[in-house]
Design a protein around this nucleic acid. Structure first.
Lengths: 251, 251
DNA sequence: CCGTGTGAAATATTTCACAGCC
DNA sequence: GGCTGTGAAATATTTCACACGG
């Protein structure tokens, strides 16, 4: 994916094991799980838990303990053999790795149902994300007040985007527009200087290679479920059993 | 993940290559991409495109052509060498594989901002998903009318869940509640007989192994972006350059 | 020729299993 | 004795590159 930079670590400095940090290149699969670990750990810390084993934490996170330990090993050696992990310490280390120790400004483009739901979504504020702008192009919604997780927010025009970015208030752009507007909006976000974009529109977007684009496609997940639901139905009522396969079904 | 059933295909029937269908076991990574292929193909068909090469389709879908061809090969041999794929035919084959040729009823639990946004989300209806119920426990929202993608919908009590499932109207459950209610709601969905659940609450849920549970965690994606955003910042302003590494940075 | 379909190679991710340390 | 951290093995996924058919 990143074709511009040497991805591999020199492999000579590390290996000794003493110079942690500098280890860089945390696997993408690991990064994708860190937020879950962090959320569960934050709840444990809240509840007053002091230490936890990889087995117990893995259980709470819905992963295997081996996977959890391997994931954490990419951040450093933060556990104690025979004991487990110090909950507040590990929580902090993951937060630091994820960049949650500093606040991030989020600008949302598209003030429809989804955009407004995102503004009031509690999960953002609680992880240090602050919605600094809700933009739309539809003239008659501009200026309307919207309930935010912290205080309120007025819908602004898309023209206010550049200022939000230049002033350093917005770091991450969220696209919550209809699909046909998504690429245009995306181009504007990039042109304004944003390099991290989250797309909720059901559209495939192109960005320059130095822009990190992620997507959440609500209907994709539903379609994956439909696939499994159908498969389940097929397994239980095989319309015409063609050759053998009969013995694989027991119900 | 599925520990109860022999996952591998007998491996004796296939291999000849002539008996497609029955090939079963489509890789999870492939299934996750099929909805995107389907959406892009449906748009192409709409636009009147008759055939398309793997190269062109892959470009539109944001994947490599090799990956696309490998993915499609798991469904069967639907292309024509030297020509490409017939757009309407391939669209239909993917729809059939995903179970989109039949309508699915979706019941959403949690009528907050997110639940209501989901009800009016266009992407569901356009892929054959119909929201057949929007449930909540909060007494003073019960009965309220909500704008739906097709017609409207009244918020019902959670008690109406069993009837929706037993009557065969609901096939998939969606959890759009706060995190602390999610496991309870999930248990009720399972008890009511649903086997496909999509969770939007920021909580790790447990389900019996025959239940397919997927999740969409809005803040997880934002945190992954924060990770990369921070890394970018670190790379450009290394607070203290410890050893070498200097030559890897050019900007 | 052209572009699909696919074995084989290269990577990435997960799981195993155990040495090492508290 | 218990639990982490991690090499090594097992899987899964992606990429390569080319034989094959229209």
């Amino acid at each position: 994916m990143s074709a511009s930079r040497p991805t591999a670590v020199p492999a000579s400095i590390e290996g000794s094991g003493s110079l942690r940090s500098l280890v860089r290149e945390i696997p993408a699969a690991t990064v994708a799980r860190l937020p879950v670990y962090h959320r569960v750990l934050a709840a444990l810390e809240e509840a007053g838990t002091r230490t936890i084993s990889s087995e117990a934490l893995a259980q709470s996170c819905g992963v295997s303990s081996a996977k959890l330990r391997k994931d954490l090993s990419h951040l450093g050696s933060y556990g104690t053999r025979g004991v487990g992990y110090d909950v507040p310490f590990l929580t902090y280390q993951i937060a630091r790795e994820l960049g949650l120790t500093q606040p991030w400004g989020v600008v949302i483009v598209g003030a429809g149902n989804l955009g407004q739901a995102l503004v009031s979504y509690r999960g953002f504020a609680s992880r240090g994300f602050r919605v600094v702008g809700l933009l739309d192009i539809h003239p008659d919604v501009i200026g309307r007040q919207v309930e935010s997780a912290d205080s309120g927010l007025q819908i602004q025009t898309l023209g206010d985007l550049e200022d939000l970015v230049r002033s350093g208030r917005a770091h991450i752009g969220v696209i919550a527009t209809p699909a046909d507007a998504a690429q245009d909006v995306c181009d504007r976000l990039v042109a304004a200087g944003l390099r991290s974009i989250l797309n909720f529109a059901p559209a495939v977007l192109s960005v320059p290679e130095d822009v990190e684009l992620r997507k959440v496609d609500l209907s994709v997940e539903l379609q994956i479920l439909a696939f499994h639901e159908q498969r389940r139905a097929d397994d239980h009522h095989p319309s015409q059993d063609p050759t053998s396969l009969g013995e694989a079904i027991n119900a």
